[in-house]
Computed example of a mutant assay.
Amino acid sequence: MKTITNKDLMRRANSKLVLQEIFNNDYITRAEISRHLGLNKSTVSSIYDELKEEQLVEEVGEGAASHVGGRKPTNIRIYASYGFTINFDISYHNLHFMANYLDGSVIAQAETTIHQKNIHEILAIIEHQIDQYV
Rank of each mutant, 00 (worst) to 15 (best):
A99K: 15
I107K: 12
E121K: 11
H115W: 08
V106H: 03
K117Q: 13
K117M: 14
K2S: 08
K52L: 11
A99T: 14
V60S: 13
I125C: 01
R71I: 06
Y92T: 11
S81T: 08
E121C: 00
I114W: 07
I119K: 14
I107P: 02
Y133T: 03
R71L: 08
E32V: 07
N40M: 06
L17W: 02
S45H: 05
R35G: 02
E59I: 03
T74N: 05
G63E: 04
R11E: 13
M98N: 09
A13V: 04
E121T: 05
G104R: 08
I4W: 11
G83D: 05
N87G: 13
E54Q: 13
I22W: 08
R35P: 00
N94M: 12
E50F: 01
G70M: 04
Y27H: 14
I126V: 15
H128A: 10
I126E: 06
I86C: 09
Q132K: 13
L123H: 12
S66K: 10
Y82F: 12
E58P: 01
S81I: 03
A64G: 00
I119T: 14
Y82S: 08
G38C: 08
L9P: 00
N25V: 01
S46N: 15
S42C: 03
S42V: 12
D89I: 04
I78Q: 07
F23Y: 12
T113R: 11
Y101G: 02
E121L: 02
I114Y: 06
I119C: 09
L56K: 09
I33T: 05
Y48G: 02
Q55M: 09
S42M: 13
N75Q: 09
G63S: 08
I114Q: 04
I28Y: 04
G104F: 09
L19W: 03
R12A: 11
S46Q: 13
K41I: 12
R71N: 09
K7E: 13
D26K: 14
I122P: 03
A65I: 09
D49A: 15
A80Y: 04
N24P: 00
H115E: 10
Q55D: 12
T29W: 06
S66C: 01
R35K: 15
F23R: 13
S91K: 05
L123P: 00
G104T: 06
S15K: 12
S66E: 06
H128C: 02
S15E: 11
V134N: 10
A64Y: 07
A124R: 11
H93G: 00
Q129L: 03
E21Y: 02
I28G: 02
V134Y: 10
H115I: 04
D8C: 02
A108I: 03
D131I: 00
Q55S: 12
L37G: 06
R77T: 02
R35W: 03
L19K: 05
A99D: 11
E127G: 05
Q20E: 11
